[in-house]
Design a protein around this nucleic acid. Structure first.
Length: 305
DNA sequence: GGAATAACCTGGATGC
DNA sequence: TGCATCCAGGTTATTC
């Protein structure tokens, strides 16, 4: 499932191929891939045609590609992308056969690389593209990773910065967590508190920090919270270095290749196997319409203070 | 206002 | 072999 490392791999893969490229044409095959777009599919196609992609940026799981200004003088805009659970952004040669679950194809011409196709494919149709307005960030810091401009898509403005963002505010994160009575795992998954973390990396970071997923957030000591934040960063960075987590064909980079981090998972999906730390059995429990995987021995709720 | 829950969606895995 | 059911989970609207 695309979480921060997977989205960053996609962004980094797109950047050299799309920055400076002009949009030659757009084919929206499935309107479900445009649920975030405020207009029709025809409007999406018309507003994108002829524009130049001037960069790539990412905040948490949101990815965007700023566009050149329009002749009409409308404010700055971007192509906003959310991969949802199964979205893929693929780079293909012009005229390449349609991908399975292909929803949108954007044909571009790059001054150095020539013609290419950006293909958005999505099996479960939770992902979406949109043309969105770019608005100033409240803290006047760059809107996201990969672009120094202090602008962020309107639809991603409510999302907190992610832990790998240089402008991430550790103190603000601690204050927000300390004010929550919910389970710490639920707080980690709350994109308005900290972005980029999904079910996989939440389980991995909690395991690494020895924190029980159902510990009330406000019960965590400063020490435990600092340890957890450090482990979140470590897990995300390691996954990023290994190209992200792929269990099946659900996540691939822009060339259709899988990542390797699934081999490094310690807790997620390993229920019934021995804990790599203590050797006791890892378990899986139902949690907030999800599954939680943890070690009931070395992640005890009573050990947080 | 904060917190919890359901719904959206598809295809692979599983059970009968 | 074929059909029905379950499960995966990011985001958001709805409900409490």
């Amino acid at each position: 499932m695309p979480e921060l490392p997977e989205v960053e791999v996609v962004r980094a893969g797109l950047a050299p191929a799309v920055t400076g490229a002009r949009v030659l044409g757009v084919e929206a095959h499935d309107v479900r891939a445009l649920t975030r777009h405020p207009g029709t599919a025809a409007d999406f196609e018309a507003r994108l045609g002829g524009r130049t992609i001037v960069g790539t940026a990412r905040r948490g799981k949101f990815l965007w590609m700023p566009l050149s200004d329009t002749a009409s003088g409308a404010g700055p805009e971007c192509i906003m992308v959310h991969l949802g659970m199964s979205g893929q952004m693929l780079l293909r040669a012009p005229g390449a056969p349609a991908e399975r679950h292909e929803r949108v194809r954007i044909s571009i011409e790059h001054p150095d690389h020539g013609e290419l196709a950006i293909v958005f494919a999505d099996q479960r149709t939770f992902g979406s593209l949109a043309i969105d307005a770019l608005i100033p960030t409240l803290d006047r810091q760059p809107g996201g990773y990969g672009d120094a401009t202090p602008l962020v898509p309107q639809q991603a403005a409510h999302i907190a910065r992610d832990p790998l963002d240089p402008a991430f505010d550790d103190a603000l994160f601690r204050r927000r967590v300390a004010g929550k009575g919910s389970a710490i795992k639920r707080v980690l998954l709350d994109q308005t508190v900290v972005s980029g973390i999904g079910n996989i990396y939440a389980d991995e970071a909690l395991w690494a920090a020895r924190v029980h997923p159902e510990t009330p957030a406000r019960d965590l000591s400063s020490r435990a919270l600092n340890r957890l934040l450090a482990e979140v960063r470590a897990v995300l960075a390691k996954a990023l270095a290994e190209g992200g987590t792929s269990f099946d064909a659900q996540y691939v980079n822009v060339n259709g290749e899988a990542g390797y981090f699934a081999h490094s998972l310690n807790a997620y999906g390993r229920h019934g196997e021995p804990c790599p730390r203590c050797g006791r059995m890892l378990i899986r429990v139902s949690f907030a319409n999800r599954s939680s995987h943890y070690c009931p021995f070395c992640q005890r709720a009573s050990r947080q203070r």
